[in-house]
Design a binder for these strands. Structure first.
Lengths: 184, 184
DNA sequence: CGTAGATTACACAGATCTGTGTAATTCGGA
DNA sequence: TCCGAATTACACAGATCTGTGTAATCTACG
């Protein structure tokens, strides 16, 4: 039941906005009473936190070459934008929508962004890039920028543009870091 | 009067979110009656559109060297983030908050982002860079990415990271475009 | 002074939202 | 079959929001 509530909350919160979706709407969508929903989540804030926490899953480890994984992240973003159900980063949206500075959403959003950055950093280190930490931040900025631009423009091409920029940054960083791995 | 309403609406909408601020709050903040506000703006939607349109001002022309202007944009962002009143891009926030796809906010936000991109493109062309259009999009992505990252992290350093990335992209693009101007 | 337009106070309609209280009902498992 | 837990229907409180109606009042200006 909890999971079914969270699935529906995810779909509605992400698709229409957290403030725009009422608790009644979620319950009605599932076909349960509002009381049941409140028995599982004592308040809407609890539901919001659970919704965001559920999206806080680390990327599954892959044995593909690091460079391929990095570029794959941009490709995946491009495909996601192209589906049309794309509505930006749920964490950034939540923080922008819930402007109370003390809201738990801020903590979760930060954890997610940092998790992604560290994922980039690990791959960059495997490529032997010395400036892995700084570059990982820049790659994350490119991802977030492509997401923001895609919200406004609705055009998957922005992800390709970000990918091209990432490639330039990677090549520039590789020049001063001579440790090419056999994989790529 | 119109201007006073718009000033206050801007401050509250941007600072707390469009959905989070009621018409009553804006009127009370100025010290006017709600009726007066509705006499100037027939609906909240009209007020939202006016609020966004008012922010749609082109950057004033500058006679400084193009490269300096481009880097200055990132510096300005860094300073803005550091002030603490920074709450992201008002246009992206509006689109994310008002998820109705037909809302006029989408059109205005797109106009703004395109205006900024074209501003970058013009400067890049003056630098004799052949890939000005593609690069301008990438610079805009870096700006938007730094903004999104700053919302979550609250750290002005992300703007500096974006600036450094922009510099790398510019240098890479300049290699194949030999037309250095005397200014910079 | 006199008038026209702007502004005010204020009540109110109607919608929506979060959250609660309660008693009846359903359902799974021992 | 029986018990306890989950779920249901449903009303309701109380807050908030957008938008309107109206009559009184202020204010600028001829």
């Amino acid at each position: 039941m909890q999971e079914r509530i969270l699935e529906t909350a995810d779909r509605l919160f992400y698709g229409q906005g957290i403030r725009a979706v009422g608790v009644d709407t979620i319950a009605a969508e599932i076909g349960i009473s509002k009381r049941t929903l409140y028995n599982h989540f004592p308040s809407k804030d609890d539901l919001i936190v659970a919704y965001l926490s559920r999206r806080l899953k680390p990327a599954p480890p892959s044995d593909r070459p690091p460079l391929e994984q990095i570029m794959g992240a941009f490709d995946r973003l491009e495909r996601t934008i192209a589906t049309g159900v794309f509505r930006g980063c749920p964490f950034v949206n939540a923080v922008a929508e819930l402007k109370e500075p003390a809201h738990a959403a801020n903590r979760i959003a930060l954890a997610f962004k940092e998790q992604r950055r560290v994922w980039f950093q690990g791959l960059l280190e495997r490529l032997g890039i010395g400036t892995a930490e700084a570059l990982s931040m820049q790659l994350q900025i490119l991802m977030d920028g492509a997401i923001a631009a895609a919200i406004v423009r609705g055009d998957p091409a922005v992800a390709a543009a970000a990918r091209a920029a990432a490639k330039v940054l990677l090549e520039a960083a590789s020049v001063s870091a001579p440790r090419p791995t056999p994989n790529d």
